[in-house]
């Protein structure tokens, strides 16, 4: 009897939530929104860098862990405040399982990660990396600990996402070191 009452209450709660919930905004961020999250109020300068084979090879070496780097083009978004550069935002597109994820990696002028943001995530939402997990990357430079073999934990239930994001951050930091946009 108690179970029956519980089940009816469960359905009532489910229906109530369904009917009362206001849909929130879509989950995709634009480049503008991402950069303003990382560098609020800044003026942004977009640059384009073309990589030669030697630069790509150097980036692969720096990224390590067999992380693929096939970029011929790197586009940093350099944020300026009061005319001075305060950081750079990069955007990396990669596959998680079958579908694509785009993340922003924001770097300060001393080559440290200051923010990671999921811009677009097309796999089921329960595979999406939570913000608290992303915070592990903050204040880190490209070194051996910036790795799942190092200090970056995995995500229980979203192993492929954890691996894809970690690889993307290492790739971006390696490309950042190679092009030296400032």
């Amino acid at each position: 009897m108690a179970l029956l009452i519980f089940q009816r209450a469960f359905f009532c709660v489910a229906v109530s939530i369904l009917t009362a919930t206001q849909f929130l905004s879509a989950q995709t961020l634009t480049i503008t929104e991402g950069v303003q999250l990382a560098f609020p109020g800044s003026i942004v300068e977009r640059k384009t860098f073309f990589l030669n084979d030697e630069q790509k090879e150097e980036a692969r070496r720096l990224a390590g862990e067999n992380i693929p780097i096939d970029n011929n083009l790197v586009i940093p978004y350099i944020a300026h405040t009061d005319g001075n550069p305060v950081g750079i935002a990069y955007f990396d597109a990669h596959r998680v399982r079958t579908l694509q994820e785009v993340i922003m990696v924001a770097v300060d002028t001393e080559d440290r990660v200051i923010r990671i943001e999921t811009m677009r995530f097309q796999e089921p939402p329960n595979y999406r990396a939570p913000g608290r997990w992303m915070a592990q990357f903050e204040d880190r430079k490209l070194d051996r600990d910036l790795s799942q073999k190092g200090d970056i934990a995995t995500i229980t239930g979203a192993t492929l996402t954890a691996r894809a994001v970690t690889a993307a951050v290492r790739r971006v930091m390696a490309l950042h070191a190679v092009i030296d946009p400032l």
């Binding site: 995709t28 480049i31 597109a93 785009v102």
Partner: peptide
């Protein structure tokens, strides 16, 4: 093409 229409302004 890389990031998608939705992300790029």
């Amino acid at each position: 093409m890389d990031l998608g229409d939705v992300v790029v302004d």
